[in-house]
Amino acid sequence: MRIGAIEAGGTKFVCGVGNEHGVIEDRVSFPTEKPEITMANVVGYFKDKQVEAIGVGTFGPINIDKSSPQYGFVTTTPKPGWGNFDFLGALKAHFDVPYGWDTDVNAAAYGEAVWGAAKGLDSCVYYTIGTGVGVGVYSEGKLVHGLVHPEGGHILTRRHPEDTYDGFCPYHGDCLEGVAAGPAIEKRWGVKAVELPPEHKAWEMEAFYIAQAVAGSILLLSPRKIILGGGVMHQLQLFPLIYAEVKRALNGYVQAAEILHNIEDYIVSPGLGDNAGLCGSLALGLDALTNSRK
């Protein structure tokens, strides 16, 4: 099979072609610009690939209600030019194939459930912590959508006692994304996150915020695996700090060996690495093709 995959991020688009085994055979990336420029690049990439279906995992919020006239639209994103953009419509004008459609983080969660760190498990929560913060939820063998879809990057957080930064989210100020995403680190400390040394107190503060969200997911969803991805999580010194903060936040309330004794195997990096989103989009496309043949 030849399945197209699109990981549409706020900073860059990654497009690829893969097979039913989750193997990405070809890929390309380019910056996320205005829709007309970006989508022209997407169409140009796929025009000679002869894919049988295309899966899309995109930044959001998005409309995933198939009964809605706006199904396939990006909705209230602050990304300039992309608000109320008919993403799927722009693709369907060029390619008459089945489409999978979901958020980029739900796609990543799905990729990890099918081929990655949560393979064989019936649930996982995937966080991407980078330019923004997103959360994908896979529960009892399926992706969670609900009223719209999870937007866990915008949950409210308890403030770190030493944090005086107001937060940068244009909607909520000091929500999780507003205080823990890469731009928040840069604005708070005056340099990019990658320039901060591992021992800098910024990482203790970052772990405090991430751990609050993780503890909340454990209490609310009880997932069998929590996966932390995105550019900020390339700072591996964060993991032991997060482990300690999660245990402190839960304070022994959740009596599970995975948390009390083996937390390093419970809260993990993506098994698919930076391919989680693209592989998840591939899985979405594969599902769309399979469903179209029923």
Rank of each mutant, 00 (worst) to 15 (best):
A118W: 14
G182P: 01
A118H: 10
M205Q: 08
R248S: 06
N84H: 04
H200L: 01
V144S: 06
K187C: 01
S281L: 06
S292R: 07
L121P: 12
F13M: 01
G83M: 07
L278G: 02
L221P: 02
K92R: 14
Y253I: 13
R159Y: 00
F87T: 10
R159H: 03
G153N: 09
N84R: 04
G273R: 00
E186L: 03
K192C: 01
G173R: 04
V23N: 04
E258K: 10
Y243Q: 13
R293S: 04
G60D: 08
G16Q: 08
D86S: 03
L284A: 07
L289G: 00
R2D: 01
H21C: 00
V105Y: 01
N106G: 08
C124W: 12
G120L: 15
L238W: 04
V28E: 15
E25H: 05
G4W: 11
R188D: 00
H261Y: 04
L260V: 08
A181M: 01
P61F: 14
F239K: 11
A40F: 09
G18T: 07
Q255E: 14
V232Y: 02
K119Q: 02
D102L: 14
E7L: 08
I210L: 15
P98C: 00
V268F: 03
N19L: 02
D265L: 10
R27Q: 07
P98W: 04
L143V: 06
A108Q: 10
L241E: 07
Y243I: 05
G132R: 10
K34V: 15
G153R: 13
I185N: 01
N262W: 02
G230A: 06
H154F: 08
F59A: 08
E204S: 07
A109R: 04
V17G: 10
D122S: 09
K192P: 02
L236P: 00
T32W: 15
K225F: 10
K294Q: 09
D86L: 03
K66T: 12
I62A: 12
V194W: 08
E206A: 09
G229Y: 05
Q235M: 10
D174P: 05
L121F: 11
Y209G: 03
A257T: 11
G229A: 14
S217F: 05
Y171C: 12
D104H: 07
D96F: 02
L219V: 11
D166M: 02
G100N: 02
K225M: 15
L196Y: 05
H154G: 11
T77M: 01
W115N: 02
L250E: 13
L121T: 10
L289I: 00
A117L: 06
P78W: 15
G72E: 08
H154R: 09
N41S: 07
H94Q: 11
